[in-house]
């Protein structure tokens, strides 16, 4: 009855819509608070793991193994996988999560400010990282273009596939690898930036994410795909007609793991993170193609993971993600945004 009365009068309808609008736009501040009080997901014995897509099959083995330990007994798991940035934003917007496994540290640090992750998440012995890998060159079987070094990528006629670094946070590892490798090779900053410019001139396709890039490459586009070592190993293990080359200088990809502050069962969540960092779980990572964060496990599997002479990291060699992102990916004056913008102008000139 009330509804009918409301809707008979247009003014009331407008008021209702306005109220709805205010409710929607005004609730921004409450989001984190309500997420904070509502606690973790469904009861104490269920943990929700929110992760990026790639390590799914690792966790499909690690989780049952954890459940077989005393700490994990009786703990049920719900799992959600998706692009790292999307997952992080979903948690920020109120998706219940107990454990986060994401592709790069900024997707965790983003959650520090709304209070969803404790700022000490990266204080542990592995600095918050659960797995590592490296940026490598995935090439066609037999390496027909004989691609060995970063310099080979900028030769005339070589087509390089890498995801659009603005659509894919993970693709920023590739840019960091290419840039850092130039510095490692003794080039100046300007020369390294110039290298990025020539590199992107050889990129005919920038799919939106790593998965799409792999699909595009498998469909026959491009001579080399900038990929992660673990994914390259997986593609090879799946019998794809590809092989990969580890460049002498490349970046160590570091994937973070963290517990949320609003977990319904922080003890169990922390126990799971501890287990993921223990030797049995790390062996699963190693078998699936990741470089282990535990020295003793890394040693055991050393034969599978050739040592990379010029390995560098984001934090020690490139100034950390925050500075790097501001410098390279700021939409207005980041270096990479500039490279793309110049490309626009040169196209207009043509």
């Amino acid at each position: 009855m009330i509804l009918r009365q409301v809707f008979r009068r247009p003014a009331a309808l407008v008021a209702l819509l306005a109220a709805g609008l205010i409710a929607v736009t005004g609730c921004g501040d409450d989001d984190s608070a309500s997420a904070g009080t509502s606690g973790g997901s469904g009861g104490d014995s269920t943990l929700t793991l929110v992760g990026y897509t790639t390590p799914r099959e690792v966790y499909e083995e690690v989780i049952p193994a954890f459940q077989a330990t005393p700490a994990g007994e009786g703990i049920e798991f719900e799992q959600s996988y998706g692009p790292s940035g999307d997952q992080s934003r979903a948690v920020e917007a109120g998706l219940d999560a107990d454990v986060l496994v994401l592709s790069l540290a900024p997707d965790i640090t983003r959650l520090e400010e709304p209070g969803l992750v404790d700022p000490t998440w990266d204080d542990g012995p592995t600095k918050g990282f659960v797995s590592t890998s490296a940026v490598v060159f995935l090439v066609r079987e037999g390496n027909p273009e004989n691609i060995r070094t970063w310099d080979d990528l900028v030769k005339d006629g070589i087509e390089v596939i890498t995801p659009n670094p603005f659509s894919s946070g993970g693709a920023q590892w590739n840019v960091a690898a290419a840039y850092g490798a130039q510095l490692k090779a003794g080039k100046t900053k300007d020369q390294a930036l110039e290298y990025l410019r020539t590199l992107f001139a050889n990129v005919p396709v920038q799919p939106k994410g790593a998965r799409e890039s792999l699909q595009v490459f498998q469909a026959g586009k491009g001579d080399v795909l900038l990929a992660y070592e673990n994914e390259a190993k997986l593609a090879q293990a799946n019998g794809e007609p590809v092989e990969f080359v580890i460049p002498d200088d490349t970046i160590l990809i570091q994937n973070p793991i963290a517990v949320t502050t609003n977990s319904g069962n922080p003890t169990a969540a922390q126990a799971f993170v501890d287990y993921a960092l223990s030797a049995p779980a790390q062996e699963v990572f190693a078998k699936k193609g990741y470089r282990s964060v535990l020295p003793e496990v890394a040693d055991t599997y050393a034969a599978d993971f050739p040592e990379i002479p010029g390995l560098f990291t984001m934090d020690e060699d490139l100034g950390g993600w925050k500075a790097f992102r501001d410098e390279f990916f700021d939409p207005d004056n980041g270096y990479v945004a500039d490279i793309f913008a110049d490309r626009g102008f040169s196209q207009e000139d043509e």
């Binding site: 659009n164 490309r343 196209q347």
Partner: peptide
């Protein structure tokens, strides 16, 4: 369009 465009700005 996910797999069929190059997703290259300006292009």
């Amino acid at each position: 369009l996910v797999l069929i465009t190059g997703n290259i700005p300006f292009q």
